[in-house]
Design a binder for these strands. Structure first.
Length: 582
DNA sequence: GCCGTTTTCGGCCCGACTGTTTTCAGTCG
C-alpha cells in the first residue's frame, strides 16, 4: 500500500514539475489524476504492474504511458522520467509551490526574474526587497507571500478527521443560528470521512448571504481573512486550519452540497453522465442542455433538479450515493444494500481498564457499554510484554478474568467477555502460551512493537497470529499512527487470504489517530472475503463516542452489516466466537 | 496524458475572488 503512496507522490511531483516548465495543462491534469487514483486505489498498483498490466491500464485515468511508468517503478524502484524532469529544476523550487497563493506561474516568474530557487532564497529576497518591481508584485502581494511563507513554516500537516470534525460541527451550529440561514452543513473531504483533511468546506443556504459572510470572517477565532466576497469567503483559524464558506440560494442547496462534497472524480463522472443525457450539471443545479455556452442559471433556465442531492441523483437514474463512497475507486456504483452504520453496532470487543492502561474500573466500563445499549463488551487489557501499559502477568490475567466475569454478573443484562489484547511479538509468537489463552473468552491479537520490520517479517508475523486457534481478531493490524508512523507493511493479500480462510476478523480501530485498517485496505480485505470488527479500543468512557470514526472508515471501505462481527445478531456472533480453539 | 456507439484526433469544468490592473491574469477548489 505504501507503494501506492510512493507512486502517487512521483506522479504529483511530475505534474508540479511540468507545470513549472509551462507544459500543457491537460497533460499536467492527467498526471494529477493518476496521482489521486493511486492514492485512492484499493489494489496494490505495483503488484498489479508486475503481474497484470492489462488490469492496471483498465483503471480509469491510467493509460498506457502511466502504466509503463508504474511498471518501471514496480520492477526497478525507479521512474526515469520523474528523475529527468526534476533534474530540470532547482532542487527546492517545487517546495515554493507549497506557499499558499503561489501557483506555477508566479513561482516560474520568481525563479526566472527573481532568482528564487527554494524557500530559503524566497525568504531572503523578500527580506532584502529584491522582488519589488517584478511584474504583478505589488506591495500587497509581497506582504501576502511573506505572511503565507511564515504560515507554511509553522503549519502542521493535514488535520486528522477526529480533530477537524468537532470544529466543523461547532462552526456549522454557529452558522445555522445566524438570521436568514436556512441550511448549514460541512462538505468536502470531511463529509466524505477521509482520515485527514486539508481544510474545512462549509456551505449555507440563504437569500441574504452578505451578513452571513461578514459574521463568518469576524469570528474571534479567525487569524487571517484569506478572501471575503458576497458568496464565498475563506479564513484561517488560529489553529492554522483553513475554512472556506460558500453561500447559495436555498433552491440550489442540493446541487451545491453535491458539488462541494466531491470527490473531484465523482463530480466528473456525474457531469459526464449528465452530458450523456443532454443535461448540464454544475453547482447551481442539473439543467437541460440547450447547447448555449452561457451558464444556464444566468439565463433563467429552470433546473431539472437542484434542491436536494437525492433529486439530482434520481434525475440521473442513480440511487443516492453516500458521501463516504464518492471516491474514484467506486465509480458511480450504488452503495451496498446494508452499508454499515453506527446504529448497527451491537457490541464493543476491545477495551481497557485500570488493570492495564485504562482509566475505568471493570464495572464502570461494562456499565457504560450496557448504558449505550450494547449486548456485549469484551474486556481486553494488555498482555505482559506491554510493560509501558502495565500489561498483565499470567497470574494477574487469570485473576482479572475472574473479576471480569464476576463484574459482568453484578452489572447484569450484558455479556462481559474476559479477554486480552495480546501482543503479537516480533517473531509472530503471542505474548501468552496457548494454555493461558484457552482460559479466556476472547482474544484480540495486536502488534505494538517492532513496527519497522521488513515486509516479509511482518507478513510472517501476522500469518502466525492468524493461525493461532484462540485468536478471533487482529487488532489495529498495521500499527500505524496517522501523521506519526507508517506501521507494518506486510503482503496484505496474503494476510487477507489467511484471515478469510481462518475466519479471523480484522479490526478497524476507531481511534482517529489509528483508523487501522485504513479504508482502502478494508475494501481490499472485503474483496478477499474477510470479516471486520470495529472497535473503539476504549480507555475511558467517552472513548465510546469514537465509534463513528471507525464506522465511517468501514463505510469508506464498503463494509456491510453482514461482514461486521459487531453487527451480527448475538447467536451468530456466539457461534463464530466459540467456533475455534476450544 | 487520457479517452472514445456521435471522435484513434481533438477535445479536456468553470466560477469566485484578489491584486494589479484600466480589462485581466493567476490561484483555488
Amino acid at each position: 500500500m505504501s507503494a501506492n503512496a510512493d507512486i502517487a507522490r512521483l506522479f504529483a511531483e511530475m505534474a508540479d514539475a511540468l507545470e513549472l516548465l509551462g507544459e500543457n495543462a491537460f497533460r499536467v491534469n492527467a498526471l494529477r489524476k493518476v496521482a489521486r487514483t493511486a492514492e485512492d486505489a484499493a489494489e496494490d498498483l505495483a503488484a498489479l504492474a508486475r503481474t497484470d498490466v492489462k488490469t492496471l491500464e483498465s483503471i480509469a485515468g491510467i493509460g498506457a504511458s502511466s502504466a509503463r511508468k508504474i511498471v518501471e517503478f514496480a520492477t526497478t524502484g525507479r521512474m526515469h522520467e520523474h528523475a529527468e524532469l526534476l533534474a530540470k529544476l532547482p532542487e527546492g523550487l517545487m517546495g515554493v509551490l507549497r506557499v499558499p497563493g503561489l501557483g506555477p506561474k508566479t513561482v516560474k516568474l520568481l525563479w526566472d526574474q527573481g532568482g528564487v530557487t527554494d524557500l530559503a532564497t524566497l525568504k531572503a529576497k523578500l527580506e532584502s526587497g529584491a522582488l519589488e518591481g517584478l511584474p504583478r508584485m505589488g506591495a500587497k502581494t509581497l506582504q501576502n507571500i511573506r505572511e503565507n511563507l511564515a504560515f507554511l513554516e509553522t503549519a502542521a500537516a493535514r488535520a486528522r478527521l477526529g480533530d477537524a470534525l468537532p470544529i466543523a460541527e461547532a462552526l456549522v451550529a454557529a452558522l445555522a443560528a445566524l438570521p436568514g440561514v436556512k441550511e448549514a452543513a460541512f462538505a468536502g473531504s470531511l463529509r466524505r470521512g477521509k482520515e485527514t483533511i486539508g481544510d474545512i468546506d462549509l456551505l449555507v443556504a440563504t437569500t441574504k448571504p452578505k451578513p452571513v459572510m461578514d459574521a463568518f470572517v469576524s469570528r474571534p477565532d479567525v487569524a487571517k481573512v484569506l478572501a471575503h466576497g458576497d458568496t464565498k469567503s475563506s479564513v484561517r483559524l488560529q489553529s492554522g486550519l483553513q475554512v472556506d464558506l460558500r453561500a447559495v440560494e436555498p433552491a440550489a442547496w442540493g446541487a451545491a452540497l453535491l458539488y462541494f462534497t466531491g470527490s473531484k472524480e465523482h463530480n466528473v463522472l456525474l457531469r459526464e453522465r449528465a452530458q450523456e443525457r443532454r443535461q448540464r450539471l454544475n453547482e447551481y443545479g442539473l439543467f437541460p442542455d440547450d447547447g448555449q455556452p452561457e451558464p444556464p442559471q444566468e439565463r433563467g433556465v429552470k433546473p431539472v433538479a437542484a434542491a436536494t442531492e437525492e433529486a439530482i441523483y434520481k434525475a440521473l437514474d442513480l440511487p443516492w450515493i453516500p458521501p463516504e463512497l464518492r471516491e474514484s475507486r467506486n465509480g458511480l456504483a450504488p452503495a451496498p444494500a446494508s452499508l454499515i452504520q453506527v446504529t448497527d453496532i451491537r457490541r464493543e470487543l476491545h477495551c481497557h481498564t485500570t488493570a492495564s492502561d485504562g482509566f475505568e474500573t471493570i464495572e464502570s466500563i461494562i456499565g457504560e457499554a450496557k448504558r449505550r445499549g450494547f449486548d456485549c463488551i469484551a474486556i481486553t487489557d494488555h498482555s505482559r510484554s506491554s510493560a509501558q501499559a502495565n500489561g498483565l502477568s499470567e497470574e494477574r490475567l487469570l485473576e482479572h478474568a475472574k473479576a471480569v466475569r464476576a463484574a459482568g454478573k453484578r452489572v447484569g443484562g450484558i455479556h462481559a467477555l474476559a479477554g486480552s489484547e495480546v501482543d503479537i511479538l516480533a517473531d509472530g509468537h503471542l505474548d501468552y502460551p496457548d494454555d493461558v489463552l484457552a482460559e479466556l473468552d476472547w482474544v484480540v491479537a495486536s502488534p505494538h512493537t517492532a513496527l519497522k520490520q521488513s515486509s516479509e517479517a511482518a507478513t510472517q508475523r501476522l500469518l502466525a497470529a492468524i493461525a493461532n486457534p484462540h485468536v478471533r481478531v487482529i487488532g489495529h493490524p498495521s500499527g500505524r499512527i496517522i501523521g506519526g508512523r507508517p506501521g507494518l507493511e506486510p503482503d496484505w493479500q496474503a494476510v487477507f487470504a489467511a484471515a478469510s480462510k481462518a475466519r479471523v476478523a480484522l479490526e478497524i480501530n476507531a481511534k482517529p489517530m489509528r483508523l487501522d485498517l485504513r479504508d482502502q485496505l478494508v475494501h481490499a480485505a472485503l474483496a478477499a472475503g474477510c470479516l471486520i470488527s470495529i472497535n473503539t479500543d476504549a480507555h475511558a468512557l467517552d472513548n465510546f463516542d469514537l465509534l463513528r470514526f471507525g464506522v465511517t472508515t468501514g463505510r469508506r471501505g464498503s463494509l456491510t452489516l453482514e461482514h461486521c462481527v459487531n453487527a451480527w445478531p448475538w447467536k451468530r456472533f456466539e457461534a463464530w466466537r466459540t467456533s475455534r480453539g476450544r
